[in-house]
Nucleic acid binder design. Sequence first.
DNA 1: GGACTAAACGGACCGTAGTCCGATTATTAT
DNA 2: ATAATAATCGGACTACGGTCCGTTTAGTCC
Lengths: 202, 202
Amino acid sequence: MSFIPLLPGSLSGPPAERSDAARNRERLLGAARELIAECGPDALTMDRLAERAGVGKGTVFRRFGSRAGLMMTLLSDSEAAFQARFMFGPPPLGPGAPGLERLIAFGAERIAYVMEHGDLARAAEASARSRYEVPAAKLWQRHIELLLREEGMDADPLLMAMSLTATLDPDRILHAVRVHGLAPERLTDSWRELVTRVVRGR
Amino acid sequence: MSFIPLLPGSLSGPPAERSDAARNRERLLGAARELIAECGPDALTMDRLAERAGVGKGTVFRRFGSRAGLMMTLLSDSEAAFQARFMFGPPPLGPGAPGLERLIAFGAERIAYVMEHGDLARAAEASARSRYEVPAAKLWQRHIELLLREEGMDADPLLMAMSLTATLDPDRILHAVRVHGLAPERLTDSWRELVTRVVRGR
DNA sequence: GGACTAAACGGACCGTAGTCCGATTATTAT
DNA sequence: ATAATAATCGGACTACGGTCCGTTTAGTCC
């Protein structure tokens, strides 16, 4: 008996992962989480990961493309949760509150997110490509831009959003907190001041 | 006849480079400039450089410490010139103009600088260390902080300066111009808006 | 000039990210 | 069940940044 697709093939998405491929992906993700739990993300090398998962190195790269890709995969759950909260969640982060309130909340949540997943996020940003052109990054910036427009921003909302996004860069935030020893609350306060001034205009 | 120092030793600085070391440093810098002129900074590898300069690889690293260090050395002239201009040059970049004017000029000049030396600057920023902890970077940020204070900034000038500095990151600027195709003038305009709003306060 | 010392030299060596391709194996059609 | 096919697998290989250490050499003192 043969399988008759209910939808045209192209709508079913990619032709379904082979079972061994799926098994290896799970093994790899598990091994990666183990290694990170043991020694932190910086100590995770692709060779060690392959060995721990009992898999060839080529397999690791076919699955995730690059080290940054692997890190993004590991982050994708918490990342998706964050996205859901600022797009559909309760105010002030989600819709329902005024734009400025949402901007302030967005920065605060982002800073908290970096405090929790910062090392992983940094490792996921290896190349310049994977820093700005990743869907998640484009989404944040677009979100900020939208909130700025909602607040009547007249001056180039796209570039203003870009500047505000730069402030929330994980690398910079982690450096400020870990090297300079600044308290995260201070960053949050400064973010509030910054967006308030930018939105209020001249 | 022996040399009698006019000043205590420690004031004469490091004990003078040996002649072969100086010769090799010049050779290496020349070769580096050649290679960069031919294929751009990204194609400069430390092995190729050593070979081109007719020198061992170890010598390259002893001279410059790292690839980023080499790039910084190559930038140091134009970097020093830039520093001199915003610290001692004519207004509005240099002292004499109001703080806001100087801030606006600073951003404009920095963007122009990145347009000219951006690839090199990016290559000089390889590690997180050499991104924020390098003397030049700390100087800019301190400069911006000072100008903010001069304009009566009440809200955490240090962190505001950090945010503004993030906007001028070479990586981000190059990405905006080269990938997104934004005109540098547009970045400059947006910078003016940004600092104006930040300084004017609420 | 010759001996001494500290600095500089050079290239073999290491760890890591990423590539490649012949061997292997899951899946499907017969 | 068997054969055909296409995806997957694995690990040797490359390129690169960076380190190490035995060897060479410039500068100094007699």
